[in-house]
Amino acid sequence: GGIAYVLDFDEAYCNQSLVLTEKLTDGAELDNIKEMIEKHVSYTGSPLGKKVLDDWKNYSQRFTRVIPEDYRKMLENIENAHRKGLTGDEALMAAFQESLKN
């Protein structure tokens, strides 16, 4: 479970019955991706990472978020628990219990 950010996503290589895919439009999420790539380039000297950063305006529009349906539901359940005033482990347990009901 987790979120993947895929450059030039190809549906032919993905079991879409288990995951949701969305083109990225959120500026903050794109900023996080850019920051991850910057760290990757600084640690590894990746030529591809440098190429992506050098043309970020173009490449940033080519990322797709891939998230397992169950993981997305769990994140929603955690957010609902937070709205009810639960925090920390209580929120996680409430979210887990809610996911067992479905």
Rank of each mutant, 00 (worst) to 15 (best):
F63R: 09
D89M: 06
A12I: 07
M93I: 13
T87Q: 12
P47H: 06
G85Y: 10
E69D: 09
D31A: 15
E22N: 04
N15R: 03
P47R: 06
E90T: 05
L18G: 00
Y13N: 03
A81S: 13
H40P: 08
M36V: 09
G27V: 03
M74H: 10
L30C: 10
Y71R: 04
E69A: 15
C14E: 04
Y5N: 00
L100H: 08
E22L: 04
Y43P: 00
Q16Y: 06
L92S: 04
I3G: 00
R62L: 03
K23L: 03
Y59L: 05
I67L: 01
L20A: 10
E69Y: 14
K50P: 04
K73I: 12
E76H: 11
D54E: 07
F9H: 01
H40Y: 15
Y5A: 00
Y5R: 00
T44R: 14
A12V: 05
V52L: 15
K39S: 12
N58V: 14
E76A: 11
T21W: 00
L86N: 02
R62K: 08
D70E: 12
K101M: 11
T64A: 02
L20E: 10
G88Q: 02
G45Q: 07
L86T: 00
L86I: 03
L86H: 08
A81Q: 13
K39Y: 06
N15Y: 00
E11K: 13
F9E: 00
I37D: 05
S60H: 05
L92D: 10
L20D: 13
H82T: 08
N102I: 10
V41M: 06
D26C: 06
D8P: 01
P47Y: 09
K84D: 08
L92N: 10
L53R: 05
L7V: 03
Y59H: 13
K51I: 08
K50I: 11
T21E: 03
K34C: 10
L53Y: 05
D10A: 11
Q61A: 13
K73G: 10
V66K: 04
A28G: 02
E38T: 11
T21R: 06
H82D: 07
D89K: 13
N102G: 12
D10R: 15
K101N: 02
Q97I: 12
R65T: 01
M74Q: 05
R72L: 02
Y59D: 07
E38I: 12
G45D: 06
A91Y: 05
Y13C: 08
E11M: 03
L92P: 02
